[in-house]
Design a protein around this nucleic acid. Structure first.
Lengths: 193, 193
DNA sequence: GCGGTTCTGTATCGCTCGCTCCAGTTAAAT
DNA sequence: ATTTAACTGGAGCGAGCGATACAGAACCGC
């Protein structure tokens, strides 16, 4: 019936993720985003609505890509290794990015976008997924005795989430490996011998 | 020699702190800031140079006000109470702010301003002060036996900093008391009985 | 190959941004 | 009282912003 798109929506969206990730919502201009995505202004607005809509789609893509993939991979491990593995993964990702962009989800939490209820809900949902991952494995580990039950799994899951969040913030400030691993060590000590 | 200022620099600067705090660096326009501060554009630039300069002065004011005062107050307490008191203080401040602005210092860490080396250094310095506070009291507590020495004070100080950072991030997402105190409880458990 | 529909490319729109300029005002120094 | 230097008020600069308009190009079903 009509002329087909000349670009791949998924590829373009990933370029938008990169743009928002490294520049933040406010600082990423629609012109720059469109250029990164290889689109003209018209195609940009035609395909993605407006800047806010694009951001929400980009956040979706980030969550269902980076985050969900990591969780799925670590879910295969025994509880204790899954928990420790998540922290180790965050350290490596943080140190491995020369741009020190941190985590798009956590960056968004402190961005102005957090004043937008829809976006705030999506960010809170993403962080909730991370906490649910920790809670799931902490409970499993406490059930099979590989993780100490001295602290409630609920509380521990909050603590592990807070370590992840803080690592990502510190990573943006060019924290080194000692600082990041220093955060993780005492938290992991709570899991018991 | 000349006409004196009609405004108080400290009062105006505090208004700028509020503006940057609630809106962030990028989203706070010079027009809005000047209006909050009760200044015309000319006086604004005359007195504070430019937006970036104002932000750095505002960050200074925030650090030497809010942060240093809290540290000075808690330094009077015994080590264990000082550490626990800091966390309790952050919880109350976070929940007590109806705007949920979090902490200006930590907001700045994830703002675009963090790409500016000078600002990043100042933010890192502020966070370093918080960690130094924890380290000081953790070491004192380990020395007098009121705090467990099972974990190195260095590592613990990183963990407590990460709890503070994460609390402030979560506060912006309207986290409730359970979440914030859930982060604190296991961390405090590491201090021993 | 033709009609209809959706795409692309470019030229803007109206607005706000950070910042500057300058005439006019004020008050200390002489 | 005059000079002089700093401050005030407000207009306005160029640039960039998010978003739109519209003409033409490309493809599908027929």
């Amino acid at each position: 019936m009509a002329r087909p798109r000349e670009f791949d929506e998924g590829v373009a969206l990933q370029a938008a993720v990169d743009g928002f990730w490294s520049q933040g919502y406010g600082a990423a201009s629609t012109r720059d985003l469109a250029a990164r995505m290889g689109l003209t202004t018209a195609s940009f607005y035609n395909a993605f609505g407006d800047k806010r809509g694009l951001f929400m789609k980009a956040l979706d893509q980030y969550l269902s890509g980076t985050l969900s993939q990591r969780i799925a991979r670590l879910d295969q491990l025994p509880p204790r290794q899954a928990v420790a593995g998540y922290l180790a993964d965050v350290v490596e990702r943080s140190l491995g990015d020369p741009q020190r962009r941190g985590c798009m989800l956590i960056n968004a939490a402190l961005d102005v976008t957090a004043q937008d209820p829809d976006i705030r809900a999506e960010v809170a949902g993403g962080l909730g997924e991370i906490r649910a991952f920790f809670l799931r494995h902490l409970q499993a580990g406490q059930a099979d005795g590989t993780i100490s039950s001295a602290q409630p799994a609920e509380d521990l899951s909050h603590l592990f989430l807070s370590v992840v969040v803080a690592m990502r913030v510190m990573a943006r400030l060019h924290a080194d490996r000692d600082q990041l691993e220093g955060m993780a060590r005492p938290a992991l000590a709570l899991l018991g011998p």
